[in-house]
């Protein structure tokens, strides 16, 4: 296993090609759930969990169903169905066996069943690692690492944003910029700071 490439994938998806700040995936939860730190944290957790899980599931679908039968064009349809239904399944499972966890966590799971960041990581995985026939375990590891780290990057930016927005509540922001507009300006400035990570080499 080439660890170097794995590390590169991880760093790239957390910092350089951060899902929110550079790929613009998952902007709805980013703007919607970043007003307070606590919900932002749970949202990040849920996204990370679902991204990792759906990376595994879509890896299985692609390598055991789509590629062997040459029906890759059904990728969009099958991924979306599989992700949505498995998230629902996980949600029901948690609701049944751990109601306390479900109480703080469940609503976020429901919110992201058709989230573009989750779907995006699956599509990205298939473009990057699954299209070319490869060793199965190898592609699984790459998919899982990319899925997990995409979630970590998402959580990090969401948390930073929520901290800033809590502070912005006390700020004298012009009336027409309050709420979403200033959130986008903050995101833009954060994205500028993240540009510093461009061109990393290890």
């Amino acid at each position: 296993m080439d660890l170097n490439r794995l590390l590169m994938v991880a760093i790239s998806v957390i910092f350089i090609n951060n899902f929110i700040l550079s790929k613009f995936l998952g902007l709805c939860p980013f703007i919607g759930v970043s007003k307070k730190t606590e919900p932002a944290f749970y949202m990040g957790l849920a996204v990370t969990f679902v991204m990792t899980a759906s990376s595994i599931i879509t890896w299985a679908v692609y390598s055991f169903l789509l590629r062997p039968f040459h029906i890759e064009y059904l990728r969009t349809l099958s991924f979306i169905l599989v992700i949505a239904s498995s998230v629902q399944l996980i949600e029901m499972f948690i609701q049944k066996f751990n109601p306390a966890l479900y109480k703080v966590f469940g609503i976020y799971l429901a919110l992201i069943t058709t989230n573009c960041a989750v779907f995006g990581v699956a599509v990205l995985n298939s473009e990057m690692f699954l299209k070319v026939a490869d060793n199965l375990t190898r592609s699984l590891v790459f998919c899982v690492v990319q899925g997990f780290c995409a979630g970590v990057g998402f959580t990090m930016v969401l948390l930073l944003m929520s901290g800033i927005r809590e502070r912005l509540e006390l700020c004298n922001v012009p009336r027409s910029m309050k709420g979403m507009p200033i959130a986008f300006i903050v995101a833009s400035l954060m994205s500028m700071a993240f540009m510093g990570f461009m061109g990393f080499r290890f």
């Binding site: 700040l21 613009f24 910029m177 300006i185 833009s188």
Partner: peptide, 10 residues
């Protein structure tokens, strides 16, 4: 990327 966020915000 920063430009996109900037334009939509403004």
């Amino acid at each position: 990327a920063p430009g996109a966020l900037l334009v939509i915000g403004i």
